[in-house]
């Protein structure tokens, strides 16, 4: 089962991570690779480009967006055997990072889609 673990933030200005935190994060990522569970990871730019399609008209807007409450700022794609494993990994992540918010979503494969 694949899960996308995302960290979100509310767009308020934040202090850049300390050197210690960065080192700990690096160690955590290395540990997940060594456990054979990490498929891909990355950080995302704060703003981004938004695309809206409505009645055949496509609108492209550049961020940042003051109205957006939560935006994804980082992700890790993991392959694990259960949602609980993804939650366990996520707990370790937050033990390193401290305060914050995240969301874990399953990435569906053919085995998860009914009728296929």
């Amino acid at each position: 089962m694949r899960f996308l673990m995302m960290t979100t933030d509310d767009g308020s200005p934040q202090e850049p991570p300390s050197e210690r935190l960065e080192a700990e994060m690096g160690a955590f990522i290395a540990e997940m690779s060594k456990a054979g569970v990490l498929l891909a990871t990355g950080g995302l730019e704060p703003g981004g480009t938004y695309i809206t399609a409505k009645d055949g008209k496509i609108t492209v807007t550049d961020g940042p967006f003051s109205e957006s409450k939560e935006t994804v700022v980082g992700f890790a794609l993991v392959e694990v055997r259960s949602r609980e494993e993804a939650i366990e990994l996520s707990k370790r992540f937050w033990q390193i990072v401290g305060d914050g918010r995240g969301v874990i979503k399953q990435v569906f494969g053919p085995e998860d889609l009914p009728g296929q």
Partner: peptide, 11 residues
């Protein structure tokens, strides 16, 4: 129990 199962598999 599900958490224990997950921890066990990881650890």
């Amino acid at each position: 129990h599900r958490t224990i199962d997950a921890v066990w598999r990881l650890e």
